[in-house]
Design a protein around this nucleic acid. Structure first.
Lengths: 119, 119
DNA sequence: CACCTGCTTCGATGGACGTCAAGATAGACA
DNA sequence: TGTCTATCTTGACGTCCATCGAAGCAGGTG
């Protein structure tokens, strides 16, 4: 199942990152890139924020929708910035509120990296 | 050593940790468990070690096969222990050498979490 | 039995990270 | 235009983590 629809939206480390972990040993450079994405999801608050945005209707959510993750709003903003820097989210200001959206290509790339050897 | 620190990821390989991120917002408990696995792969050295074991013939490799990741051997052992605590690897001593093997169920669970939305 | 090799554990250090409080900025409404 | 709400940024603090050197333990080999 080759879903090779890679959007060239992101400038840096996005979709064509790495082969599946079960295929070949990653090089140091590949591991650095992939580990940055995994590290972005390695925090419970960030993972929860990401799932909140990813599961929202239309794939986008504003900060006003996320206010019950257990941390203060500046911390939420900080984590959203981290996710945006990792290429997992994109932000857009529509008037008063800022909407965050998931980057489906990056999600697919991470899933491909974790694909088991024999599907 | 004490087995009391093993994360509840491996309690039963039939129970996946969490639903896909794109389906529902994760609860705090689910996010805690899933983030522990992602954090284990959030380090370049660990990710490289994991891919070395996962891509090895038969899905197992001994520490003697991994000696070019750029860190000292104690550090390699430290990271392998972390991966083992996260439930991603299992170790077995066969004579002189210790062999590490991947846990395919956990790999599949992580891939399922990252599965893109399937319309 | 003694030595040697391979792997783990211990203690310490330096850097990175998560968290919050306070200030700054952008848009909306009267 | 002025003010108010909502969000982002900055600075600081405490904690966790990766890394290393040295010591400890297990197993094989002479």
């Amino acid at each position: 199942m080759s879903n090779a629809k890679v959007l060239p939206v992101l400038e840096s480390d996005a979709a064509p990152c790495c082969p599946p972990l079960t295929e070949r040993p990653l090089t140091a450079e590949e591991a650095e890139r992939a580990a940055a994405m995994f590290k972005a999801l390695g925090d419970p608050v960030r993972l929860r924020l990401f799932s909140l945005v990813a599961s929202h209707a239309g794939g986008e959510a504003c900060v006003c929708d996320i206010s019950d993750v257990g941390v203060s709003q500046p911390t939420v903003s900080h984590h959203l910035k981290k996710l945006k820097e990792a290429g997992l989210l994109t932000s857009e200001r529509r008037g008063t509120w800022v909407y965050y959206r998931v980057e489906p290509s990056v999600l697919a790339a991470m899933g491909r990296i974790l694909a088991p050897a024999r599907p």
